[in-house]
């Protein structure tokens, strides 16, 4: 019989290897999941649309639509708004981390990973590392387009690199929130809706587009406690070489807070999942 032959062929020898390799370390397991994220980009390149097209669209739109009205000239507004757009686009992309986890859960692959004898958080850490690549690409797109449009940061290359680094740390921390939500929400659609409700006010009620001095007092107070405001101020400072040590401190504190609250919560939800 043909099927018999197929079974006899290599199966027996393939099964005779009973030796189990040493358990993978937490770091290597995380890096292997990162590799999976890279393979996903390779196979589904259209998922990179959001990290390339949306930053371009935002930067062009806001600079040329509002620049003249808000800052007198588009060139001047670009210097002000680019750090803000950078933060906003990357902050929005962090949602996709949660979406990715949410859609993985629905598939059998999630059970497969969870039934492996590996360091369990590696699945999440690897996904986050993969998304950090996406955040970096988006940042590069914004900065390069900005430079072409006439963005001239006084802080130079070092200032820009440091600000992107700070943004990556913040995005990595913020992603834990969406992962936690991704584990709780039933559908990607509801997750998307909830994260938009959180992110829109968070990014708009800030100093991304305009200086808060022009706002009503109560709104200005709100803007002043928004972590995005600190982040944007810190990044503007780094890019234009002004002192922003205090703001950087607040940003890092926010990051530490996000990670200490949401990573254990996420792990708890992950282990408890069904």
């Amino acid at each position: 019989m043909e099927t018999q032959a197929f079974a006899e062929k290599g199966l027996r020898s393939a099964l005779s290897t009973h030796t189990r390799p040493p358990r993978s370390s937490p770091l290597s397991a995380s890096l292997i999941f990162w590799w999976r994220a890279m393979l996903k980009i390779k196979h589904i390149p259209e998922q990179m649309f959001d990290v390339t097209a949306s930053p371009i669209m935002f930067l062009l739109m806001f600079t040329y639509l509002f620049g003249g009205a808000l800052a007198g000239s588009t060139g001047e507004y670009l210097q002000f708004v680019l750090p803000g757009i950078l933060v906003m686009t990357v902050a929005f992309i962090t949602i996709y981390t949660g979406l990715g986890i949410n859609s993985d859960i629905k598939k059998g692959i999630f059970d497969r990973f969870r039934s492996l004898p590996i360091w369990q958080p590696a699945f999440l850490v690897g996904a986050l590392l993969g998304d950090t690549v996406r955040y970096t690409i988006a940042s590069v797109v914004v900065v390069v387009l900005g430079l072409i449009m006439g963005f001239r940061p006084d802080g130079g290359a070092v200032g820009v690199l440091l600000s992107v680094l700070l943004l990556l740390v913040f995005s990595f921390s913020l992603s834990w929130v969406w992962i936690a939500l991704g584990l709780v929400m039933r559908t990607p659609e509801s997750l998307m809706a909830v994260s938009m409700i959180i992110l829109f006010p968070l990014t708009f009620v800030s100093n991304v587009f305009v200086s808060p001095e022009t706002m009503p007092v109560w709104l200005e107070a709100l803007v002043d406690v928004n972590p995005i405001t600190y982040l944007v101020t810190a990044i503007r400072g780094l890019m234009f070489d002004t002192t922003v040590a205090k703001e950087i401190g607040w940003v890092l504190l926010t990051c530490a807070l996000l990670v200490t609250v949401f990573s254990p919560l996420t792990m708890y939800l992950y282990r408890k999942k069904r």
Binding site: R20, P22, I32, R36, L39, K107, I109, L116, I118
Partner: peptide
Amino acid sequence: GQFASVDEDLTGTENLVLLARLLG
């Protein structure tokens, strides 16, 4: 499992290599 327990976006080889690497 009852439903595909491999990553449908990856190739057959990639799936097996991924899991083999995770197993050490």
